[in-house]
Design a protein around this nucleic acid. Structure first.
Length: 473
RNA sequence: GCUCCCUUCGUCUAGCGGUUAGGACACGGCCCUCUCAAGGCUGAAACACGAGUUCGAUUCUCGUAGGGAGCGCCA
């Protein structure tokens, strides 16, 4: 049997981290088994579905690299099929027309809650109701009144529900469109989905769907309900905290593989391993290793993983991303060193490509002033001669590579009887404007000869002005 | 309210009857060191509670508490 999973988002908003995790697990399971992964858009509710959401979902999945083998299948293209099966259920007496109005149902629900009862449809129309003028009926499914449904969930084990707890759900709306429960069940069967892997929030829906499956004469898929991902504060992910569009992570300079690596460890583990290549994930992923409890999203751990990926990825792979980040913050990548070289120098110092771009700004744009604190501490008259020697030595230096630059600094430091750092740190401030950068030789190489010389000149002028000011006091 | 699910360091997790309860992030210390990082070593830090089952429970069962989900002509 061909293993087949599906990711079935509804296009009513952007794709967020929770959706990506669900898609990832579906994808991993299918890839591991050599099966198929299908993308299906659940857009039966025309009022809430938007083309922008569809676009955001497709883009998001493409960005993280979760590619699908079939689809996207749109449920809105399959209405004829749903109608056909609803008609069949009606004909067989397994479903019925219900003329209760939304207002009546709402009132009923309220009354039930007020009376401390379980809110559910009272089955008023179940045994035949006369058509009411001006009201187009919905179709309701006749849920069995007794018996029970046992789900054998791959992550939770057996879960039992009594049919008596369930009510008769609407399967076709008054406007003739199908509802979620009806369309999922039909599509999963028609598409021959073998494993339904989805969020925990669907566990309670499963017995209703199984009753429908049985009425329709379909076979049951295997089920796996994944634990939820909570926001950083431990509450449900929502627009207010954490539930940002997955594409935001791209904007912020996260790497798709790092995001997937982070997500795969939320609810799944393989011993103590933290870092997984995509191939390893595929090879090692098993539903039995998915745990059942909800987890919190941690942006700190994501940041750490992203840094690990930045450190380990070939510079050439990272270069386009850094290029884009530089442009995004208003820098011109062509006005400085090759971005791949910058990555080599900065990769251990940045958590995201955005951060990296921000840290290396002085390579692409001149700065107006030295950072006050760093300048005060390091650009002092005592170091003037040393800096001046450095300036001259750099001007005459044959090549412009880190090793030669390092040797030059060392030579000047020796001649002036200074520790390397005593000279290096003032030089760093002179050339970068601040006190933090990659190793000074690498930094100077990246800044370039011309810029380095003019910046050292500026530092010398700064020191002179400072000395003059001190004298006048 | 009813039904269902969940519960190991602050967080992500390993554990699948007998362990000094392991790893990772974050945090502290030390080392390395031209700054900042990265890296190495190291420290503090957890089995929600109560009953059972058992020679023995973090592990199995049942309660309690806490958290979550569902109960739509949303998905």
């Amino acid at each position: 049997m061909q293993i087949k999973t599906r990711f079935a988002p509804s296009p009513t908003g952007f794709l967020h981290i929770g959706g990506v995790r669900t898609a990832l697990f579906c994808w991993l399971f299918a890839r591991h088994a050599g099966g198929k992964f299908v993308l299906r858009i659940e857009d039966t509710d025309a009022r809430r579905s938007t083309p922008e959401s569809i676009d955001a979902i497709l883009q998001g999945l493409e960005w993280v690299g979760l590619d699908w083998d079939e689809g996207p299948v749109f449920q809105s293209d399959r209405f004829a099929r749903y109608t056909e099966l609803a008609t069949a259920l009606l004909a067989r007496g397994q479903a019925y027309h219900c003329y209760c109005t939304p207002e009546e149902l709402a009132a009923m629900r309220e009354a039930q809650i007020a009376a401390g009862q379980n809110p559910r449809y009272n089955r008023k129309c179940r045994d035949g109701a006369a058509p009411r003028a001006g009201i187009s009926p919905v179709v309701r499914f006749k849920t069995p009144r007794d018996g029970e449904i046992t789900i054998h969930d791959a992550v939770r084990g057996p879960v039992v529900y009594a049919n008596a707890e369930l009510d008769d759900l609407v399967i076709m709306r008054a406007d003739g469109s199908p509802t979620y429960h009806f369309s999922v069940v039909i599509d999963d069967a028609d598409m021959q989905i073998t494993h339904v892997i989805r969020g925990d929030d669907h566990l309670n829906n499963t017995p209703r769907q199984i009753n429908l499956i049985e009425a329709l004469g379909f076979g049951r898929p295997e089920y796996a309900h994944l634990p939820m991902i909570l926001g950083e504060d431990g509450t449900r992910l929502s627009k207010r905290h954490g539930a940002v569009n997955i594409l935001e992570y791209r904007e912020q300079g996260y790497l798709p593989d790092a995001v997937l690596n982070y997500l795969v460890r939320l609810g799944w583990s393989h011993g103590d391993q933290e870092l997984f290549t995509l191939d390893e994930m595929i090879e090692l992923f098993r539903l039995e290793d998915v745990n059942a409890s909800a987890s919190r999203f941690s942006s700190e751990k994501l940041a750490w993983l992203n840094q690990q990926y930045i450190i380990r990825s070939p510079a050439a792979e990272l270069a386009p991303g850094l290029d884009a980040q530089l442009r995004a913050i208003g820098l011109d990548p062509d006005s400085g060193p090759a971005v791949a070289d910058v990555i080599e120098g900065f990769r251990e110092r940045a958590t995201t490509l955005r951060e990296l771009a921000e840290a290396c700004g002085y390579l692409y744009r001149d700065f107006d002033a030295f950072e006050a604190k760093a300048a005060k501490k390091h650009l002092r008259p005592v170091i003037r001669d040393g800096l001046n020697d450095l300036r001259e030595a750099f001007a005459e230096l044959g090549g412009w590579e880190a090793a030669a630059i390092q040797a030059t600094i060392q030579a000047v430091a020796d001649r002036r009887e200074l520790g390397f750092g005593k000279l290096g740190q003032p030089l760093r401030v002179a050339v970068t404007g601040g006190g933090v950068s990659p190793p000074i030789d690498v930094t100077i190489e990246l800044v370039g000869r011309e810029r380095s010389l003019t910046r050292i000149d500026a530092a010398l002028a700064y020191i002179d002005a400072r000395a003059a000011a001190a004298e006048h006091r």
